[in-house]
Amino acid sequence: MQHRAAPGFQAAWEVADRIPGWLTEAQARLLWETAEEVPDGGLLLEIGSHQGRSTVVLGALARERDARVVAVDPFVDGRLFGGRPTREKFERHLAEAGLTPTVELLADYSTRARPSWSRPLDHLYIDGKHDYWTLSDDLRWTRHLRDRGPVLVHDCFSSIGVTLGILVHVLFSGRLRYERRAGSLALFRVGRPSLRDRARILGELPWWIRNVAVKVLLRLRLRPVARVLFGHRGPYDPY
Rank of each mutant, 00 (worst) to 15 (best):
Q27N: 05
A97W: 08
L30Q: 08
G8N: 08
F9P: 03
K129Q: 11
G82A: 06
D197G: 04
R198I: 07
T100W: 06
D40L: 03
R198L: 11
P115L: 09
D137A: 14
W22F: 04
D131P: 13
A182K: 06
L58I: 02
R148Y: 01
G78A: 05
P85S: 06
E91K: 07
L195H: 04
H3E: 01
A35H: 00
V151K: 01
T134M: 07
Q51Y: 04
L44T: 01
P85V: 02
F157M: 15
W207I: 12
R4N: 10
D17K: 11
P101M: 13
T142F: 01
W13A: 04
E179Q: 07
P39N: 06
Y109P: 01
G41V: 04
G98I: 15
V212R: 15
R219D: 07
K215P: 13
S118R: 15
E46C: 04
G82R: 07
D108N: 11
P74R: 06
R68E: 03
P206M: 11
A182C: 08
A113Y: 06
V190G: 01
T102P: 13
R18V: 02
A95N: 10
Y236L: 05
G8C: 09
Y178W: 14
P193V: 01
F90I: 10
R175L: 05
D155P: 13
E36D: 05
R200C: 05
G98T: 14
Y109W: 15
G52T: 02
W22Q: 09
A213S: 15
T163P: 13
T102S: 11
G174I: 02
G48A: 02
S158H: 13
I160P: 14
D155M: 07
E37M: 00
G78E: 02
A26I: 00
K129T: 11
L105Y: 14
L58M: 13
M1T: 11
L202G: 09
L167A: 11
L176S: 04
G41E: 03
Q51T: 08
E96L: 14
